Simulated assay, not measured.
Amino acid sequence: MLYLILEQALNGLQYGLMLFLLAAGLTLVFGIMDLINLAHGSLYMIGAFLAAAFYQAFQSFFPALLLAIIATALIGAILERVLYRRLQRMSHLSQVLATFALILIANETIKIIFGAQPLMIGMPESLSGPLELVADELYYPAYRMLIIVVGLIVALGLYLLVNRTRIGMWMRAGASNPEMAAVMGVRIKPLFTFVFALGAALCALAGALLGPLLAVSVGMGESILIPAFEVIVIGGIGSMRGALVGSLLVGMIDTLGRLLLTFGLKLVVDSATAATLGPTLASMMVSLLMVCVLFFRPQGLFPARG
């Protein structure tokens, strides 16, 4: 039982870090550009499809991953210059409507280019087996462990970028007062393009990494968008630390909560009912946590400092 809990805790960590890659992009775009982007999940879908296409072309996972990240970042930069730069001057309601329309456009475009059938990305052979974490007791898939390591490295890299570099200083200044930052010599428009491209690259990284575990399908961005928004509401809009903590909370509650609730419910109801009710209650707990945060601490657990 203990090792099963540890395995599910690792799964929750992996899920939480993948949510962080998406929530970090949302946090950067909203916190710095003051832009609500419902189509953020579409960039995740585009990155996954590009990774699948590059994998079919080269039959190698890591080059496909790198090319998908670069291509999605370029798409994000183009979208920012062509569309999102104009949306910044509009109300949040207009941003919501326009980016919702972009979701529909992205889904239909993907169908035209790649077809409606799901695609798969092959897992690297060197990472297809398990890792022995506890001798003869606990094994964990090597590929899932790679996702955890990559997520932690990206979290550390984003922290250093935002808090320890000149670009991060410009980003914080642009988020706090873009007009004053522009007066002080910060080139705001290229900075916003970089921020949006970085968010798109993080989406592509998440989509490509999850490709070998999930079917790459049209509409996959919408299913992941709701948990990503829950994360930034819980952690605090515009806060990178809040995005990380919120992601880990949501990942652990959704994954580890399913196991613990299912085992607990088996004590009072039959196994079939417990297996159905446990995951449902775990998902409800995430939503309940978000509601409680909104009610008692509407700025989030770790609000961004202005």
Score class of each variant (00 low, 15 high):
residue 185 G to I: 11
residue 125 E to H: 10
residue 73 A to V: 04
residue 15 Y to A: 10
residue 237 I to Q: 06
residue 75 I to P: 01
residue 38 L to H: 01
residue 204 A to N: 02
residue 160 L to T: 05
residue 4 L to Y: 13
residue 125 E to Y: 10
residue 173 A to R: 00
residue 211 G to F: 03
residue 281 L to G: 08
residue 196 F to T: 06
residue 305 R to D: 05
residue 72 T to L: 04
residue 153 I to W: 01
residue 83 L to F: 15
residue 297 R to L: 08
residue 246 G to L: 12
residue 171 M to I: 14
residue 43 L to D: 01
residue 289 L to T: 10
residue 6 L to E: 13
residue 199 G to Y: 04
residue 184 M to A: 13
residue 216 V to R: 00
residue 189 K to H: 15
residue 91 S to C: 06
residue 178 P to V: 13
residue 89 R to Q: 15
residue 165 T to R: 02
residue 58 F to W: 10
residue 266 K to Y: 06
residue 128 S to R: 14
residue 107 N to K: 11
residue 58 F to S: 04
residue 275 A to Y: 11
residue 110 I to L: 07
residue 187 R to N: 14
residue 73 A to M: 02
residue 265 L to Y: 04
residue 96 V to L: 15
residue 136 D to N: 15
residue 77 A to M: 07
residue 137 E to G: 09
residue 205 L to K: 05
residue 131 L to C: 05
residue 305 R to F: 04
residue 48 A to F: 08
residue 5 I to D: 12
residue 223 S to W: 06
residue 200 A to N: 07
residue 257 G to N: 10
residue 138 L to H: 11
residue 286 V to L: 11
residue 231 V to T: 09
residue 21 L to V: 00
residue 47 G to P: 01
residue 261 L to P: 07
residue 145 M to Y: 12
residue 68 A to P: 00
residue 274 A to Q: 12
residue 101 A to M: 05
residue 23 A to Q: 02
residue 234 I to A: 00
residue 242 G to W: 13
residue 20 F to Q: 05
residue 168 G to S: 03
residue 160 L to D: 01
residue 208 A to D: 01
residue 31 G to F: 13
residue 257 G to Q: 10
residue 118 P to L: 13
residue 277 L to D: 09
residue 108 E to W: 06
residue 91 S to I: 09
residue 292 C to V: 15
residue 304 A to D: 08
residue 52 A to C: 06
residue 96 V to I: 15
residue 287 S to R: 03
residue 16 G to D: 10
residue 210 L to I: 07
residue 283 S to V: 09
residue 151 G to D: 02
residue 57 A to K: 07
residue 21 L to T: 06
residue 118 P to M: 12
residue 170 W to H: 10
